[in-house]
Design a protein around this nucleic acid. Structure first.
Length: 562
RNA sequence: UGGGGUGUGGCCAAGUGGUAAGGCAAAGGACUUUGGAUCCUUUAUUCCCAGGUUCGAAUCCUGGCACCCCAGCCA
């Protein structure tokens, strides 16, 4: 990441860092971490958390760790650590040699728990799960102390060791911190810090049958790694006093500090792992890497670039208010990026055959076309031109409406980088009324798409030479949900956009596209940005995903009329 | 009815007592061999509301209101 991320230098977290550095807290160092639980795929909301952590470390000459928070063996799998690593690498955040797992610290955490017991600050509780809940009280009523709260230190030590030794079944007992059952903060009502779980862990195997809870494991992991600023999302604000409690009572000098920020929400999609899982498992999308998903693997397959994703995360800012960022913002970022880097190419999605009556039969000539007008130094490519072409069905109207600058009976337009053509006749299916073929003439004096006589030709169409054209499938993606915020009450699945995927087959694309590789991105002139679907490419299929359409002022005008 | 947060234009978001940055969206125009891109211009007399302090308040004080989070042996 070499770009300057302005929001990162303006947000409230940076201000905390500035002050800490001024006071020489943490020796003036900044050390952050990204702590995913390996229980699913990461999404663009996680990407923002990564950017904030990694970016803030970079901006302050600090370090960034990747640490898997693997404290619940019933939910976590090796498969997810691999996919998360792949995704973060692709995003470009660099943890160097600092890849850690909370499970690396299980021994040290156990020792700390023993210390808490010795200090009379933790106890083994025999209450059942239901009883613990009852004893906890409610939001407005204080809880009751557990009858096991005053057990002797010796007994607690013995019981905890036997918990570890596997003497008790899953869920039989827990270790709890002794804090305050009357605290208005539910997290401080003698929270559970260890539970029994006879379940093999993907990293530690059968070594443990007791596992630490997040609230306990997280501050300790941070402290063990020398993290200075532990950034997390807003819902952990109430956990902060507990985070601090463990570090204070375990006597960590210069403990890390937790700072919370609002997680990213984007309109017309969902971000919670639970909902994403429902989309996948319910078959509403085709897997975690479905190009409609806000997962990193989905966005990658869709054709998004890491640069665009980071630019988007940066632009959406870092603050503490819950917000819903418009998906238009994301689309703007990828357009801006791809406008500069994507080679231009012509593809006709809905082909209409055009015969150029005055063009010699059997002849082919090769015309020059710019690879990318934003990068003229890239030069030009050769495009075949012949008597039979395809243009977009959309680019012809029998009765052209006002301000329609394209083809109609007797009208003339320009074929991009080729010639002016004039429509002299057309064929129509008598049954359906569908236009099936255009007969046109071309003006040989307009080669390259230009004439010296000052003729005004408003419209320019993209086209492809029929004999050389290659057939392809194109997948058009639209917003996954109809409403801005499908997370709002009610069944979010009912809000699914039935047209989020349109498969268009029989598209005609310029021949050079045959040589494209998996994931290659292009601008299909006048249509949008597309990439060669990497999964289909591996099977040898020529399939393109629409990343995002081009801004289309004609379409906008039409829409306004409705 | 307990606790923790947040409220600045359609959507994000700066601003920290001196007279409302920026981006997206929207609208108008210029240019154009992509109805793309680019370039101009316009869009909050006002910062959730009501009082108060002050020469001066989005910023300070008081009192309301709205929204989000917390009662997993999940994270």
């Amino acid at each position: 990441m070499s770009k300057d991320y302005s929001a990162l230098t303006e947000n409230f977290i940076q201000k905390v860092i500035d002050q800490d550095r001024e006071e020489k807290k943490y020796g003036g160092q900044v050390h952050t971490r990204f702590p995913p639980e390996p229980n699913g795929y990461i999404h663009i909301g996680s990407a923002k958390a990564i950017l904030i952590n990694y970016g803030l470390a970079q901006a302050n000459g600090g370090k960034f760790n990747l640490r898997f928070d693997d404290t619940d063996p019933t939910k976590e799998e090796e498969e997810f650590v691999e996919s998360i690593i792949e995704d973060i690498k692709w995003l470009g955040a660099d943890w160097e040699d600092r890849l850690f797992f909370a499970s690396d610290y299980f021994d040290k955490m156990y020792e700390c728990a023993v210390q808490l017991i010795k200090d009379g600050k933790a106890f083994v509780c025999d209450l059942s799960q239901e009883e613990i809940r009852e004893y906890r009280g409610t939001l407005t009523k204080p809880g009751k102390e557990s009858p096991y709260r005053e057990r002797s230190i010796v007994e607690n030590l013995d019981l905890f060791e036997r918990m570890k030794a596997g003497e008790f079944p899953t869920g039989n007992r827990v270790l709890r911190a002794k804090i305050d059952m009357a605290s208005p903060n539910m997290n401080m009502r003698d929270p559970v810090i260890y539970r029994i779980q006879h379940n093999p862990h993907f990293r530690t195997g059968d070594k443990w049958c007791i596992y630490p809870m997040y609230d306990y494991a997280h501050p300790l992991s941070d402290a063990f790694e020398g993290i200075t600023h532990s950034l997390c999302s807003l819902e952990f604000e109430d956990n902060r006093p507990l985070y601090n409690w463990f570090l204070e009572n375990l006597d960590f000098p210069e403990p890390p500090q937790q700072i919370e920020f609002a997680r990213l929400n984007i309109s017309h999609t969902v971000m919670s792992k639970r909902k994403l899982r429902r989309l996948v498992e319910g078959g509403h999308v085709n897997g975690w890497d479905d190009p409609r998903m806000p997962t990193i693997c989905g966005l990658r397959r869709r054709g998004y670039t890491p640069e665009a994703i980071w630019d988007f995360c940066d632009r959406s800012g870092v603050a503490k208010s819950n917000s819903l960022v418009s998906i238009a913002q994301l689309e703007h970022c990828i357009r801006e990026d791809l406008n500069i880097r994507a080679p231009r190419v012509m593809a006709v999605l809905d082909p209409l055959k055009v015969i150029i009556e005055n063009y010699p039969e059997g002849e082919t000539e090769y015309l020059d076309s710019e690879i990318n007008p934003e990068q003229p130094e890239l030069g030009k490519r050769k495009l075949p031109f012949s008597r039979e072409l395809y243009i977009e069905k959309d680019d012809f109207r029998e009765d052209p409406p006002k301000k329609f600058f394209r083809l109609g009976p007797g009208r003339e337009i320009r074929l991009k980088d080729a010639y002016y053509i004039k429509c002299v006749d057309y064929k129509k299916d008598p049954e359906t009324g569908e236009i099936t073929e255009l007969r046109c003439t071309y003006d040989p004096e307009t080669k390259g798409g230009w004439s010296e006589d000052g003729r005004k030709v408003r419209g320019t169409a993209h086209w492809v030479s029929a004999p050389q054209a290659v057939s392809a499938e194109i997948r058009i993606y639209n917003h996954l949900f109809n409403s801005e915020n499908p997370e709002e009450e009610g069944d979010f699945l009912e809000d699914l956009n039935p047209d989020s995927l349109e498969i268009v087959s029989g598209c005609m694309v310029e021949p050079g596209l045959k040589k494209s590789g998996p994931g290659d991105r292009f601008q299909f002139l006048r249509k949008g940005y597309f990439n060669r679907d990497p999964v289909e490419a591996k099977k040898g299929n020529l399939v393109f995903n629409r990343i995002v359409p081009l801004r289309d002022t004609w379409a906008k005008m039409q829409k306004k009329k409705d």
